[in-house]
Simulated scan of single mutants.
Amino acid sequence: MNLYESTKTWKKKPVVCVCKAGEVIFMPNGWWHLVINLEDSIAITQNFVSRRNLLNVLDFLYCLQ
């Protein structure tokens, strides 16, 4: 919850939405996101590393250090 409050001072504002029962949201590869569950929820994720995107994934992980 503290991170969400800090986004109010960012130059690039985050997109905010509410998914209601039965709705789905798709997050493209590489988009940073934060989820706050207002009710019991199920999340399905597919973080796939292939030969094609391996260098991008390694670059991303290196930047986290």
Rank of each mutant, 00 (worst) to 15 (best):
S6G: 06
L61Y: 12
F48W: 07
N53D: 01
M1A: 09
R52A: 07
K13Y: 00
N47H: 04
S50K: 02
P28K: 05
F48L: 14
V16G: 00
K8P: 02
E23R: 06
N37V: 04
P28S: 15
W31F: 15
K20H: 13
K13E: 05
V49R: 12
V24G: 03
S6R: 11
W10C: 08
W32P: 11
C19G: 06
I36P: 02
T45A: 01
F26Q: 07
F60K: 11
I42H: 11
T45E: 03
L38D: 13
L58E: 02
A43Y: 01
P14M: 02
N29L: 14
V18Q: 06
L58F: 07
A21G: 03
F60A: 14
Y62H: 10
L64G: 06
R52G: 01
Y62Q: 09
L34H: 04
F26H: 06
C19K: 09
T45W: 00
I25Y: 06
P14Y: 02
L54T: 06
Y4A: 15
S41K: 04
V16F: 10
V24E: 05
Q65N: 13
V49K: 01
T7G: 02
P14E: 03
A21L: 10
E39Y: 02
W32H: 08
A21S: 08
F48D: 10
L38Y: 06
N56Y: 10
C63W: 08
P14A: 01
H33W: 04
C63A: 13
S6W: 04
S6P: 01
I44Y: 07
K8E: 14
L58N: 05
W31M: 10
W32A: 14
L34I: 02
F48C: 13
R52Q: 08
I36E: 13
D59K: 15
